[in-house]
Every structure is written in C-alpha cells, then in structure tokens.
C-alpha cells in the first residue's frame, strides 16, 4: 500500500481552464515519488497547463491536486523546483548567472538582500557540478543555450527540491545539449528526485526516460516508452501516423507522412 508521501503528484478528478474555457476535465493521475516522467503530446494539447496545474499556478475549476500528500500552498518552500521554457525568459534582463541561481534561495529566511557566504558557496558548488562555474558572473545573454538551460536547472536545484518540473527543457538547444540535459536529469532521478518534464522530442523520451505520459486534453496512455510508443497510441495522441523503428534495443520514432508522399 502506498502512503501519501510516496505519491509525489496526485490529481483527482481535476478540471482546469482559463476564463470560461476548459482545457481538460476530470483528469485523475498519480506519479510515484522518485519517478522520471516525460509528458508528450501535440502543441495545444494542454501539457503546459497540466504542469501549471501541478505547480499550482493554473486555476483549478474542480477536483483536488496534492503533492506529497499536501496541497501546493502548504508545501514547505524549496520542495518544488521549476525550469520554465527558455523562450519565456527575458534575456535582456540585467542579471548574471549567479544572480539567477540565487533566486532559487530567495524564500530562505534572510533579511538582507545579499546572499550569505554559505549560500554563495552552495551556488558555486552546484555550478561546479553542472559545469557552469566559469560563467557565473556572465550576463545571461552572453552564454550558450546549454549553459542557459543549466543555469535555470541550477536555480531549480539549489534548494534541493523533492519534485523537479521542467517545461520543454530540450527545446531550442542542439542535439549534444539535449543529450547532456537528459543524462543530467537521469543522474538526478537516480538520486531520488521526482522529475516531470514536457517535451516534443519523442526520441529523447524513448532513449532516456523510464516512464511516459501521452497527453491530449486528457491522459491518453502512460507506461514505459516501449509499451506506450506504439503506432496506435501515438496516432491517438497526435492524430497522425508514426513509424517506430527498433534499432539495437533503441526506439526511433518518425512521422510517417513523408513515406505516404513517397508511395504516392
């Protein structure tokens, strides 16, 4: 029997929307603590709204959302880590990488605006681990895409969260950075952090993540990628044909549309 604290995320009959528009309704799902979950689905399917619901920033019309057995408002500061879509960041804002990471500690009780020596040390240690120590004092626009992703990941990790939520962490970065980010998240998951991310990169999910949720205005299916990435489920999720190729135990997923064109 699982206890409340063993369930990281629990949604019971949740209906969410904006204004008078419902994005998804009567959704129930659970994510066990320590799970590494990828949420996939087409644009406009409600993936980001689902994340915002879990984070407590979307208006919930009905139902109950609990994290580690508690409502989001009652969670201790630092329990949640969040990495937004990099596209939503104002890159012209005058902050350095170090200042961005320090924001993750802003809810720690400290009256003075400047960080303590211990906080600064924590930032330096984490930056070292993530390979961004050399750019700590750089303005955020003057670093590479991979370093930006790591800077925001560092902000999310600095408070040692139990749940890490990432909105499309592999969007807009090169393939090497995508792999690096996924490996890094895999290492964090191995250390016991529950991770939820949304992505459009089905191949990255297939090769790196143990659990996937297919989402389109509701949960279509969930399970290990090898069970979920089937033509039928992907068609149901995306409304299009997909080709799945197994190569040395790895799955490659491609859009079948070009094949249809070729055959015609």
């Amino acid at each position: 029997m699982t206890t409340d604290s063993q369930i990281a995320v629990s949604l019971k009959d949740v209906t969410v929307g904006y204004g008078n528009k419902v994005v998804f309704g009567h959704l129930s799902l659970e994510v066990p603590a320590g799970q590494f979950v990828g949420i996939v689905g087409p644009t406009g399917s409600g993936k980001t709204t689902l994340l915002k619901t879990i984070l407590g920033t979307s208006p919930v019309f009905a139902g109950e959302v609990r994290l580690f057995g508690q409502s989001v408002e009652r969670l201790a500061p630092g329990t949640l880590g969040y990495v937004p879509q990099l596209e939503s960041v104002d890159w012209s804002f005058p902050v350095t990488v170090e200042q961005v990471i320090l924001m993750g500690l802003y809810t720690e009780a400290r009256l003075w605006p400047w960080p303590s020596r211990e906080q600064r040390q924590r930032v330096h240690d984490l930056a070292d681990r993530l390979g961004i120590h050399d750019v700590l004092h750089h303005h955020i626009v003057n670093i590479s895409g991979g370093q930006r992703q790591r800077a925001f990941l560092a902000r999310a990790l600095i408070s040692n969260p139990k749940l890490l939520v990432l909105d499309e962490p592999t969007a807009g970065v090169d393939i090497k950075t995508q792999h690096d980010v996924m490996h890094l998240l895999g290492d964090l998951s191995a250390n016991g952090i529950t991770i939820l991310l949304t992505t459009h990169d089905l191949n990255a999910v297939a090769s790196h993540l143990p659990w996937v949720m297919c989402f389109n205005k509701g949960l279509v299916a969930q399970g290990p990628p090898r069970d979920i990435f089937t033509p039928a489920i992907l068609n149901q999720t995306y409304g299009g044909d997909m080709v799945i190729i197994e190569y040395h135990g790895h799955y490659l997923i491609a859009n079948a549309a070009p094949l249809h064109l070729h055959n015609h």
């Binding site: 407590g56 920033t57 500061p77 949640l80 969040y82 104002d90 804002f93 924001m103 802003y106 809810t107």
Partner: peptide
C-alpha cells in the same frame, strides 16, 4: 526596496517562476 529586494527582483524577472518558488 531594500528589505523586499529579493521578492521584487524575482517577481520582476520571472513572475510565474517566482510564484512557484514560494514568493
């Protein structure tokens, strides 16, 4: 501004994330 430096900075830079982080 002095005593609210941190929440003001975070909510100016990234209001959605600031909310999630407990500001």
């Amino acid at each position: 501004v002095f005593f609210m430096y941190k929440p003001l900075l975070f909510s100016t830079f990234d209001p959605d994330a600031a909310n999630v982080f407990g500001i």
